[in-house]
């Protein structure tokens, strides 16, 4: 993707969330990043994502995985805003930076150490 205002804008239905989306092997250049509501299982992997606004906004989003993603964002800092009681299991795996600003680990909610 050479240029876009938004990478992803996603409005699904609370009683019928968007399910089982996989995006693989992408180069993204965009202004705004990712805004989603009512999602269950969404994977973005093997991607280089360059955005001018680093905000990821999630509402009742669960099972979201970023894997092998290089984020080129201002200040090398990702911001994730999570709302909704169903939001859970959001994971950054082998990403750069390896987790969003303010997170102590790469997972939300913080996983108990084994």
């Amino acid at each position: 993707m050479d240029s876009a205002d938004w990478f992803i804008k996603l409005t699904a239905i609370p009683e019928s969330p968007l399910t089982n989306v996989t995006m693989d092997n992408m180069q993204i250049h965009t202004h705004n990043f990712f805004k989603a509501s009512d999602v269950d299982k969404f994977i973005i992997k093997n991607a280089a994502i360059s955005t001018k606004d680093s905000l990821i906004s999630l509402l009742d989003t669960r099972h979201l995985l970023f894997e092998n993603v290089q984020f080129k964002v201002p200040g090398d800092s990702l911001t994730v805003d999570i709302k909704g009681p169903k939001s859970a299991d959001i994971l950054f795996k082998n990403c750069e930076p390896d987790h969003p600003k303010g997170w102590k680990t790469s997972a939300y909610p913080v996983q108990a150490s084994k």
């Binding site: 993707m1 240029s3 876009a4 205002d5 938004w6 990478f7 992803i8 804008k9 996603l10 409005t11 699904a12 239905i13 019928s16 968007l18 993204i28 965009t30």
Partner: peptide, 9 residues
């Protein structure tokens, strides 16, 4: 492009 991907349900 405006939005690369959009789901509007």
């Amino acid at each position: 492009t405006g939005k690369a991907f959009q789901w509007d349900m």
